[in-house]
Computed example of a mutant assay.
Amino acid sequence: MFIYPHLTPSEQASLPRLLAQPRAIPNKFSDSTHQLFHCQTADGDMVLKVCNQATIQRSQFWSGANHLFAADFPNSLGEIHLTHDFLQKYGLFSVPECVSASAHRFVLTRFLTGKDVEAQHISEQWVIQLAGHIAQLHQCSYASWGNLHAPQFAADLWASRLHETLVLLASQHDTPIAQPLLAEVLAGARNSHETEFVPMMLDLRWDQFRSANANSNDLALIDLDAFVIAPRALDLVLLEYVLTPAQLALFKQYYVQTHPWPDHNENTPGYQLLLFLMNILGETDLAKWMQRL
């Protein structure tokens, strides 16, 4: 008899019947918050994601996401199907169908065939697709922010919560943040003012995508855990880190057809430090990170 790893008998009772023992999929990062398994079932191939509670408790990323945006992870896994439905309605990328999920515990999704995208081999067509996807999501504009499905915070609360989160993350960081820089950024964060909020994938990276096959330019977004409603400017600051200068120029060319590109302002250092402290792209040199924009 085959069993789903780490799940209780009651959790497994309603899941598709396994045809073989699930095979572990190696994690890409040491701080990954899930253990992944490829599952052959009577209803087709699937991927099981099981929460690693110990890793989540140590995660700077989820500490920031939960404190600032009330992301409520990993309890929010119980509503991952709502994120799937939202992205199917408003996004441009394929997303894996959610078969089953349990708050704090696991997600079972249908396996999407293809090859994981590598940041070193990004086609222009993928950059254009990403620009179209982000522009489409940014058509969904909100006056409040926070949780993707229930953005509960008023715009005038952004500054105080950003300031509190930066203080918290800086206190938890392995390396102390230089006081002059921290004081300057915190002062700017305290006075930040945002009025435009959009859906944002906080952990957007190319490795969160799959290409359908070697002969296709179509991408699928395979990780849906970290969507929130956030300032549009924060989403664009993240993209400036994710994309190379050439990719960013191409991205902007298509994005600005429907949205203006905001100039960097007094909010930018706070967003840079927030992304650094959340360990978004794994950079450890703060001076290098702050100088990139």
Rank of each mutant, 00 (worst) to 15 (best):
G91F: 02
F106S: 11
F2C: 11
R105H: 14
L275R: 05
Q57L: 13
D156S: 14
E184V: 00
V185L: 05
D174R: 09
Q139L: 11
T83M: 10
L169M: 12
L186E: 06
W62N: 14
V117K: 04
P269S: 09
L130W: 03
D72W: 00
Q152K: 14
A230I: 02
L92K: 14
V237D: 04
L239Q: 04
V99R: 15
F209T: 02
H264I: 01
T109D: 05
N147D: 14
A226C: 13
P176V: 03
A287W: 01
F111E: 12
Q136C: 08
T165N: 05
L274S: 05
P22W: 07
H173I: 01
N66G: 10
L15Y: 08
R205P: 02
S32T: 14
Y4R: 04
E164W: 01
R292D: 04
L250V: 00
V95R: 09
H121G: 00
R190C: 10
E164C: 03
A65T: 11
N66M: 07
E97K: 15
L108F: 03
A103Q: 13
F61H: 10
G64C: 09
N27M: 06
L274C: 06
E11N: 14
H173T: 05
V107G: 07
L243V: 00
Q291M: 05
Q53L: 11
L286I: 04
N279Y: 02
Q208M: 03
Q172S: 05
L130M: 12
E164I: 00
L108Y: 03
W145G: 06
D223N: 10
N215E: 09
G146P: 13
P16K: 05
A13I: 02
L202W: 08
R105Q: 15
P176I: 02
N147I: 00
H121Q: 12
M1L: 12
L243N: 06
L286W: 11
L77T: 06
D43Y: 02
I25W: 02
L181Y: 09
A170F: 11
L19E: 15
S30H: 11
M1E: 14
I229N: 12
H84V: 06
D85Y: 00
K28N: 09
A24P: 08
V237S: 01
I128M: 05
D235L: 03
V99H: 14
S14Y: 02
Q129C: 03
W62Y: 15
V198T: 05
G270P: 09
Q152I: 06
A154Y: 08
Q12H: 09
F227A: 03
L293I: 10
I229T: 11
